[in-house]
Amino acid sequence: MSDGASPLLSVKGVTLQYRTRDHLVTATYRVSFNVYQSDRFVILGPSGCGKSTLLKAVGGFIRPIEGEMRLNGVEISKPGPDRILVFQEFDQLLPWKTVKENITFALVASHTLNAREAAQRAMFYIEKVGLTEFADNYPHTLSGGMKQRVAIARGMAMEPAILLMDEPFAALDALTRSKMQEELLRLWDDTKFTVLFVTHSIPEAVRIGNRILLLSAHPGQVKGEINSSGADIPHADGTTLSGRIERLLFERSVTEKSSAHV
């Protein structure tokens, strides 16, 4: 932990609201957290806790109505290539571009590199995710897991200050999912990139994260931050990490309800 060092991403008292057709929904309420260099920071919470909205706000797609978000001390105001989002949806790859073009397009469009350097870097990251022989394939010929690998390769090729992952493995089958988690950790071992990872799966949070932010449901509020070593080993009091997280996420909502009766 980089105690004392200034955080890479600081989120302070952020309240997010969005409009549906007939409601104004508060997604998160006064959420604060700090992400440091090379963190694998996981935002964990039940469905509807506004974790995806929070990630999109960090991405610059939604403006908070209260609070501030700073990346390297600079206020986040709009989307930009220093914060690359990896989505859950398989259709995040542009179907009219091949695997390689999807990555080079991103690098060239953001003025990160010129065409030749972009092609080199694209192949480097395609190789890292083990898809070299599919570089010239169009996305619709790939499986779901391969598409997510390409999306991750694209995100990493941009070498952003922080990679934002919005449940990237949620739409995959269990076997592929587990394999992808392992691959993500292996990639992290290589380059130690900073990642902000949203999930609703406790085992995934424990496995991926080194620091886990727990959010309550509706609207999302911070319940705590927990360290994870990656393995679900029993704590001093005999409970496993995932057991502790489950209790934290579950128990407090019970006490909240009972305190409401008092």
Binding site: P79, R83, D91, L94, A109, S110
Partner: peptide, 14 residues
């Protein structure tokens, strides 16, 4: 046009 593609386009600073 899918909202995801739109966000991808904005994300890469087009």
């Amino acid at each position: 046009v899918s909202p995801t593609w739109r966000m991808v386009g904005q994300n890469y600073g087009l």
